[in-house]
Design a protein around this nucleic acid. Structure first.
Length: 207
DNA sequence: TATGCGATATTCT
DNA sequence: GAATATCGCATAG
């Protein structure tokens, strides 16, 4: 498998914090179509964000619901910081903090369309199936080599892991209930690019 | 395609 | 001890 030449992509510009909407749900929608970039010493990994979920203030499904503890402190940073945690004994997941300092809320990045470093992602994931590289939050973190080292980093200024501009306009954005939660299940806080095969979850949630 | 289950580790009760 | 913002494999249809 050969990698797509990076020069075929439009230049990816780092997003400034002032460009990020200061509301959790607006940020979740805004991030669809934007890029997540991880610069390693020899490769650059990047992918187009196609699926997110919002975990707002007062949301019983959100980790910040019961107040600040050391393990979730990154959710209480200003918008644009990474909150990375480990769960189910096997998966890391990455959120983007989404409110002002001291307020706990975030956006879970659930799926990417791989753009750069696809060979590296294939090796990390142990598969050559493009659709399975970053479809789902745990797979995404594994493909992008994201773990707790990145908990608390500023995605608007970090040298290694950052949010970038869109390489092409997002299609129509759909909304649905969220996946894998047991509390506040009714909230329509999941967003995705309609028709993208890189979106996770059952088909009935992708219309 | 859809559903079910076990694995696994960190955190909170 | 219980719960968990999941995954991958198994099985049935």
């Amino acid at each position: 498998m050969r990698e797509a030449p990076a020069q075929s992509l439009p230049r990816i510009r780092r997003l400034r914090r002032s460009e990020l909407p200061s509301d959790t749900i607006e940020l979740a929608r805004y991030l669809i179509g934007k890029t997540l970039v991880h610069k390693l010493s020899r490769v650059r990994l990047s992918g187009r964000i196609v699926e997110t979920e919002a975990y707002t203030v007062g949301d019983a499904a959100g980790h910040a619901f019961r107040g600040e503890t050391p393990s979730i402190r990154s959710l209480f940073l200003p918008r644009g910081y990474a909150y990375v945690y480990f769960t189910y004994g096997s998966s890391f997941m990455m959120n983007v903090s989404s409110e002002e300092a001291g307020v706990g809320a975030g956006v879970l990045v659930r799926a990417l369309e791989p753009l750069e470093g696809i060979g590296f992602m294939e090796r990390r994931r142990g598969t050559h199936r493009l659709l399975d590289l970053a479809r789902g939050p745990g797979r995404l973190a594994q493909a992008m080599d994201i773990d707790r080292r990145y908990d608390g980093v500023d995605l608007c200024s970090a040298e290694t892991l950052w949010l970038g501009s869109a390489v092409r306009r997002a299609g129509r954005i759909g909304a649905s209930i969220r996946i894998g939660i047991t509390r506040d299940v009714h909230r329509i806080h999941r967003f995705y690019e309609c028709g993208s095969p890189f979106v996770s979850g059952p088909k009935r949630l992708c219309e």
